[in-house]
């Protein structure tokens, strides 16, 4: 019997030590954060999110988006996260983000989906990359034509897809009854708009030369394919090239897809936080050179839904 009691105490003690040290104590430190607000209690960040955004988070979690897309930005003295431009978008390209992420950014998130691998770009600020509502569709040069000389070195073996979509795009400016920002003349919605996200989810490789080699799977099961009724649905996707359905058919997002896009559009960590030094701190609109020359970038994305 000698040694049994110390053994159990030891087993118990070591694990208690880890449990207290790595979960209980940090929880006391950062487990009860409040949103930040200014003196007048008007400028509150972060805000609780709408039901659609919450559901969109479930869709995001259920389909494993977080296994490829992180939602956290590292500080600029460690990593290139904040220097990085998004691969598509109007020139100047939107940045990945303007400041590092902080615990307070996530207080309303459950489940929290930080991600630990980047086979796809970071999405912490993807909603902020969206064009503002009043912004003119200045994007024709952006998504398809702008950076057309392919920068992807290994991409030459890919497929004839880019050629096909490039050829098809000028021809098809049909069915533009979208509620979201006006698609530009070549049929491609403005980068990171709702319509763009829908199209990207439906057919990731069809977007532009930069995405033709994307290894993102298509999420077609989040979309319904149906016959066009009396008139095309208002929310039907405008698709061109090989992704387009046959004549007389249309692709409409399911409610799940709409929630997912609402969730993506709500991703915005550009609001300054007192505890984070850097470009994004201080005045709300300080560090937003990237997104849009017009409009107020900070309020734009959340206000849209």
């Amino acid at each position: 019997m000698r040694g049994l009691m110390p053994l159990f105490l030891g087993l118990f003690g070591t694990f208690t030590f880890s449990w207290l040290g790595l979960t209980v104590i940090p929880n006391a430190q950062i487990g009860a954060l409040n949103p930040q607000m200014d003196e007048e209690q008007t400028d509150i960040y972060p805000m609780p999110q709408s039901g659609m955004v919450q559901l969109g988070r479930q869709v995001y979690a259920a389909n494993g988006c977080a296994y490829c897309h992180s939602r956290q930005l590292r500080p600029d003295y460690i990593a290139a996260d904040l220097d990085r431009d998004r691969d598509v978008g109007p020139s100047p390209r939107p940045k990945w983000g303007t400041r590092r992420s902080a615990p307070r950014d996530y207080v309303f998130e459950r489940p929290v989906l930080l991600g630990d691998e980047r086979l796809g770009p970071d999405l912490a600020d993807i909603g902020k990359a969206a064009p503002t509502a009043e912004e003119s569709p200045a994007a024709p040069a952006g998504s398809a034509a702008g950076a057309a000389p392919s920068q992807s070195a290994a991409g030459n073996a890919a497929s004839p897809k880019p050629a096909a979509s490039a050829a098809a795009s000028p021809a098809s400016a049909v069915a533009t009854t979208a509620p979201s920002p006006v698609p530009n003349p070549n049929g491609m919605p403005a980068a990171y708009s709702e319509a763009w996200h829908h199209r990207h989810l439906y057919s990731p490789q069809s977007m532009s030369p930069e995405t033709r080699d994307s290894i993102m799977p298509a999420f077609r099961f989040l979309y319904d394919k149906r016959r066009i009724g009396a008139e095309p649905s208002a929310d039907a996707l405008h698709l061109t090239g090989p992704a387009a359905p046959a004549a007389g058919w249309e692709i409409v997002p399911t409610y799940e897809a709409k929630c997912l896009v609402a969730y993506l559009m709500a991703q915005d960590q550009s609001h300054g936080l007192k505890e984070v030094k850097g470009a994004g701190s201080g005045a709300p609109a300080a560090g937003s050179p990237a997104a849009a020359p017009a409009g107020s970038p900070v309020t734009a994305a959340p206000a849209k839904k």
Binding site: T23, A32, P103, F108, E109, V112, L114
Partner: peptide, 23 residues
């Protein structure tokens, strides 16, 4: 212990925000 503690802290009385990632 770890399984029950993780379940308790993630699903029963969920911890806030990034603490979920920690747990």
């Amino acid at each position: 212990w770890m399984y029950a503690a993780a379940h308790a802290m993630l699903f029963v009385t969920p911890v806030q925000g990034v603490m979920q990632a920690v747990v």
